[in-house]
Amino acid sequence: TFYNFIMGFQNDNTPFGILAEHVSEDKAFPRLEERHQVIRAYVMSNYTDHQLIETTNRAISLYMANL
């Protein structure tokens, strides 16, 4: 899942690491979701930090390219 992918960046001092920290603390994050459209919609609806949203979009693109 995307959640498992992004958790691989925990403790990294990178934008993906920052995203992983936010996702791990977000109890409502769709952890079992595999459809990138649902993940993107969730982030757009629940996150207000523009940098975090952009990082999510980049992470989703990388995740999709590696499926």
Rank of each mutant, 00 (worst) to 15 (best):
D12A: 10
N57P: 02
L19T: 00
M64I: 14
L19M: 04
T14D: 05
T1E: 03
D26A: 02
N13I: 07
R31M: 07
H36N: 06
H50A: 14
A41C: 11
D26C: 04
E34C: 14
F5D: 00
N11Q: 08
E33S: 06
N13L: 08
R58H: 10
I60E: 00
A28M: 14
L52I: 10
D49F: 08
T1A: 07
L62V: 10
Y42A: 02
H36R: 05
L67Q: 13
Y3T: 01
T56P: 01
F16S: 01
N57V: 11
Y42W: 05
I6W: 04
A28V: 06
H50L: 13
F16A: 01
K27M: 11
A59C: 04
I6F: 03
L62H: 06
T56W: 14
L67S: 11
G8D: 07
I53M: 07
N57T: 09
P30E: 02
N11G: 15
S24M: 14
L62M: 12
R31A: 05
A41V: 08
Q10L: 15
I53T: 05
N46G: 04
H22K: 14
E25Y: 10
Q10M: 15
R58Q: 12
Y47P: 01
N57R: 09
I39N: 01
T55N: 04
F9G: 00
K27P: 14
L67G: 10
H50C: 11
I39S: 00
F29H: 05
V38K: 08
Q51Y: 12
R31I: 07
H50T: 13
N13Q: 10
Y63M: 07
F29Q: 01
Y42D: 04
F2H: 00
L19D: 01
N11K: 10
D12L: 12
S24I: 09
T48S: 11
R31D: 03
N4C: 13
F2R: 01
N66P: 06
Q37D: 14
D12G: 07
L62F: 06
L67I: 12
H50G: 10
I53S: 04
H36P: 15
E25C: 12
T1C: 06
A20K: 06
I39L: 05
F29A: 01
G17L: 04
M7S: 04
T14Y: 03
F2I: 05
N66K: 11
S45E: 14
A41E: 14
P15N: 07
T1H: 05
S45Y: 08
N13C: 10
D49K: 05
T48P: 07
T14R: 02
Q37W: 15
S61Y: 11
D49V: 05
N57M: 15
F5S: 00
E25M: 15
L32T: 13
E34R: 14
Y47I: 04
L19F: 04
L67F: 10
D49M: 06
N11L: 07
D26I: 05
E21Q: 15
A28W: 12
N4R: 08
F16G: 01
H22L: 10
T56S: 09
R40A: 10
T56G: 06
M7Q: 06
A65H: 10
Q37C: 13
V43Y: 03
A20I: 04
M64G: 04
A59R: 03
Y63V: 02
T14Q: 03
I18A: 12
D12K: 13
F9W: 06
R35L: 06
V43I: 11
A20D: 06
F5M: 01
R31F: 06
F9Y: 09
Y42H: 04
Y42L: 02
N13R: 10
T48V: 10
Y42I: 03
Y63W: 15
V43R: 00
L52A: 03
H36M: 14
K27W: 08
N4D: 14
E25F: 11
E54R: 08
L62T: 05
N57G: 07
E34H: 15
I6T: 00
Q10F: 13
H22W: 12
G17C: 04
I39W: 03
L67P: 08
I39Y: 02
Y3P: 00
R31N: 04
M64Q: 09
M7H: 01
Y42N: 01
Q51D: 13
A20W: 08
E54T: 08
T1S: 13
Q37S: 12
D26V: 09
S61F: 12
V38D: 05
E34L: 13
I18C: 08
A28G: 13
F9E: 00
S45H: 10
E33M: 05
I39P: 00
S61M: 14
I39C: 02
A41L: 11
S61A: 15
F5N: 00
F2L: 05
Q10I: 15
Y63R: 02
P15M: 10
R58V: 10
Q37H: 15
R35S: 13
P30C: 03
N11Y: 12
A20R: 06
